[in-house]
Design a protein around this nucleic acid. Structure first.
Lengths: 344, 344
DNA sequence: TTGTAAGCGTTATCAC
DNA sequence: GTGATAACGCTTACAA
């Protein structure tokens, strides 16, 4: 009967070996290389292991194997729904390849980063997937660059690391070009926090699209932001109070885009009739939005999957040279974008 | 200079010992019990360790110590923002007490649960914090009940485990009583998925409040749901199409409450004038909601913190008997609840 | 097919 | 104050 005896003190291989009257080596083989053991012994060992509720001690195994078969994913903010799906993608691939995944949220705190770096340096995890855009404090650049470490979503040009990215500049430009194609001429950008490279990249895309469209760059239309709803709302309110307000806003992420929509509605404007809004990420918020948000979808699951694949490949085949994979995004048209109202 | 030599092959204590001309025991002591070593030796060892970029191998340490100093938090769905803050609370306490925290999302998949159970049984983590409401497949009840395992948020009366909970029945009843006090008489309940005990508890609270208020129990007012926005929207649309529609809805969580609000707005009803809505959880969605959602706030961070404390206490002082901590919620009044409109 | 023994990296114990 | 040694639990040459 399954589960019998699966309580009480935990047993080691030595216990099983003793009870079965064989050596620990045989127990180990019976459990992990069944074919190398006579059917009779194999059965016996399995039976006793079951009876005792024996589970191999993974620490012992890891020490011996010099590998934890485990990946660490480092995230700034666990609360950000953007990461969850990405983590899922990584976990799925990892599982397929017999790896486990550990998730750590740093909240940008150096001490916490240091703790996680220690896990890596202390070999409790074999590889590192960084969604933070930078190395954790405590991990030297050299150390990272020769090891199984990949950057995801957030690039860092100063680091010679493998990376899984999207073309933020290009897709931001696409978003803006989409607005322009519909006839918008006053297009604002609600920026992300400038400390993050993705924010700078998306702004860069905005500027590039403007210039390609032959539109003037008006600094007043670049509103500072921090990815949050509330800041998005406030910044948009200011934008709409401008003497010559924008007819469309490209927001650096979905959450702040919802803030922009709210600001418009609060001053009696209709989205998309009076103001078009486009976001970035396509998180669950985009569907909850009213009206549903037009946005740029990042292939989050795939990003996680590819990252995990990269790290595990490096682990299995040696570091090799670093690769940079750029994945495709997609413009998801929902209901917050329309042609601008005719001039009144 | 810090970080020097922190690349290249990784070193062990034996390397450091050799270079310093001391034994590994001394290296170990110099690094972890500095006072047991002469200042001179201590300095020397530190210097060489630094120079070599030596980091102690945690696996070796763990094997020796027979402890991983690590907790596993199991979650159904990493995407649910409810968990993030709770995890943060647990991480914070764990860190204070020199523990690390590992987060695992099971998606309700048995195979995945089994993998995580293996991590626990294989002693890669010392304790378990379950936000799933049930034991992971592969972990026997007996095994769990004698070990450092706690249930959080989601109770399971069949298990004699430590638990950190809120009074779902009581606070659901409070929510409904709040509506009743304002004059509502037709109060509906948008249920959560019935497979989850918190859903059943919240429904129970709804029913209890109704009966305490002397209101009839109308099965038509209990709409089935699954915590999602879309289902909440659809169910509410049906509710509003009833011959005698409700004037208020108590929703089993925030996300479905947003769905309810949307449904009302889509048929031209004003929230809260024509329909009052109250949620449960107080996630970030409650603030993003338009109008901002009145809801029951769970002390998520504290729940995580207390859970971590419990597990670590059990680890340090032996299992002891299991405790059940019930934490307080709070009714957060925002803008989706008002007195019902006068009868027309 | 099975057993013996070494070794993974660390730390605690016991001498010195 | 320091060193030798054993031990944590497992796997794998190598030998039988």
């Amino acid at each position: 009967m399954a589960g019998a005896g699966a309580s009480g003190p935990r047993h080691t291989m030595a216990d099983v070996a003793r009870r079965a009257g064989v050596s620990t080596a045989t127990v180990s083989r019976a459990l992990t290389r069944p074919d190398q053991v006579s059917p009779k012994t194999r059965e016996l060992v399995h039976e006793i292991a079951e009876e005792l509720g024996f589970r191999p001690n993974l620490i012992g195994r890891q020490l011996r194997a010099q590998a934890a078969n485990s990946l660490l994913i480092l995230v700034q903010d666990l609360e950000n729904p953007f990461y969850a799906e990405l983590i899922k993608g990584a976990e799925y691939v990892a599982r397929e390849r017999q790896f486990s995944v550990v998730v750590g949220g740093t909240d940008g705190l150096e001490d916490v980063e240091r703790l996680y770096a220690e896990q890596y340096l202390g070999r409790r995890v074999d590889g590192l997937i960084l969604l933070t855009g930078h190395l954790p404090a405590g991990l030297s650049r050299k150390m990272a660059e020769q090891g199984p470490v990949v950057l995801v979503s957030e690039d860092n040009p100063e680091l010679a690391l493998c990376a899984v990215l999207v073309d933020n500049v290009g897709w931001a430009a696409q978003a803006v070009a989409h607005l322009h194609a519909l006839g918008h001429r006053r297009i604002a950008h609600l920026c992300g926090p400038m400390a993050r490279i993705i924010s700078r990249e998306r702004r860069e895309g905005y500027r590039r699209a403007l210039s390609q469209a032959g539109l003037p760059a008006d600094p007043a239309l670049e509103a500072p932001g921090d990815f949050s709803f509330e800041t998005g709302r406030r910044a948009t309110r200011a934008l709409l109070a401008l003497p010559d307000p924008p007819t469309a806003i490209f927001c650096a992420n979905d959450e702040s885009a919802l803030g922009a929509i709210r600001a418009a509605q609060q001053v009696g404007l209709d989205v998309p009739r009076d103001l078009s809004v486009i976001g970035f990420d396509d998180t669950m918020l985009a569907e909850i939005s009213d009206p549903p948000l037009t946005t740029i979808r990042q292939p989050r699951q795939q990003m996680g999957a590819v990252a995990a694949e990269m790290v595990i490949d490096m682990l299995e085949n040696g570091p090799g040279q670093c690769a940079r994979r750029i994945l495709d995004c997609e413009l998801v048209e929902r209901s917050t974008v329309a042609a601008p109202a005719a001039k009144s």
